[in-house]
C-alpha cells in the first residue's frame, strides 16, 4: 500500500451514523461548507453576487424558535456584510437582497440560478454604474473591437 494512502477516516467512529430514515433521501449539504460564500451565477453563467446568508422558515413561511417544526431554506441572502464580518452582528433585514430558492437550478462549486441576473436587485449597483458612469465614457456604449 502506498504510504500516501491512509485508510483510517478522521470521522469519529464511536458515534452512530445518521440513518437514511432520519437524514432523508435527498442530497446532503452543509450550509457553511457547501453554500455560504459561494458565487451565484445566473442562467448564462454570468456572476451575480455571492451567497452571504440563508433565510430559514417553516413550511408555511412562519418564523422559527424551536425545532418542533421542520425548517426549510426559503431565500438566498446577499448584502453589505464586510463590516459585520469584521466587527460582528449582521446587516438589518432591510439591507438584505433576497433571491428566492425557487430560482436555484444547481448547487455545485457555485450556485446557479435559472433567471438572468439583469433583472435581480443584487445587480443594481453594477447596472447603475454601467448606465451612468461607463456609458458616458467615449466608447463605453459598445463592445471593444
Amino acid at each position: 500500500m502506498s504510504p500516501r494512502v491512509r485508510p483510517r477516516p478522521p470521522v469519529p467512529a464511536d458515534l452512530p451514523e445518521l440513518p437514511t430514515s432520519l437524514r432523508g433521501a435527498g442530497r446532503v449539504l452543509d450550509a457553511r461548507l457547501h453554500l455560504l460564500d459561494r458565487q451565484i451565477l445566473d442562467v448564462d453563467d454570468v456572476p451575480v453576487t455571492t451567497l452571504d446568508d440563508l433565510l430559514v422558515l417553516t413550511a408555511d413561511g412562519g418564523e422559527l424558535t424551536t425545532g418542533e417544526q421542520p425548517a426549510f431554506v426559503d431565500q438566498l441572502l446577499t448584502g453589505p456584510v464586510l463590516a459585520t464580518r469584521v466587527f460582528g452582528g449582521r446587516p438589518p433585514a432591510s439591507r438584505w437582497v433576497r433571491i428566492p430558492w425557487a430560482d436555484v437550478t444547481d448547487v455545485g462549486v457555485a450556485v446557479t440560478l435559472g433567471v438572468r441576473g439583469e433583472g435581480l436587485d443584487a445587480t443594481w449597483v453594477q447596472r447603475w454604474l454601467r448606465d451612468h458612469v461607463i456609458a458616458r465614457i467615449p466608447g463605453g456604449r459598445h463592445d471593444p473591437g
Binding site: G26, R32, V56, W101, A102, V104, T105
Partner: peptide
C-alpha cells in the same frame, strides 16, 4: 454550532427541492 446540515428533500420550489434543516 459550526455548521447547519441540510438535505434537499423539502417542498419542490422551481426546479429543485427546498433544503430542509436536518440538524
Amino acid at each position: 454550532v459550526v455548521d447547519v446540515r441540510l438535505v434537499l428533500d423539502g417542498p419542490v420550489k422551481g426546479l429543485r427541492a427546498a433544503p430542509r434543516v436536518v440538524g
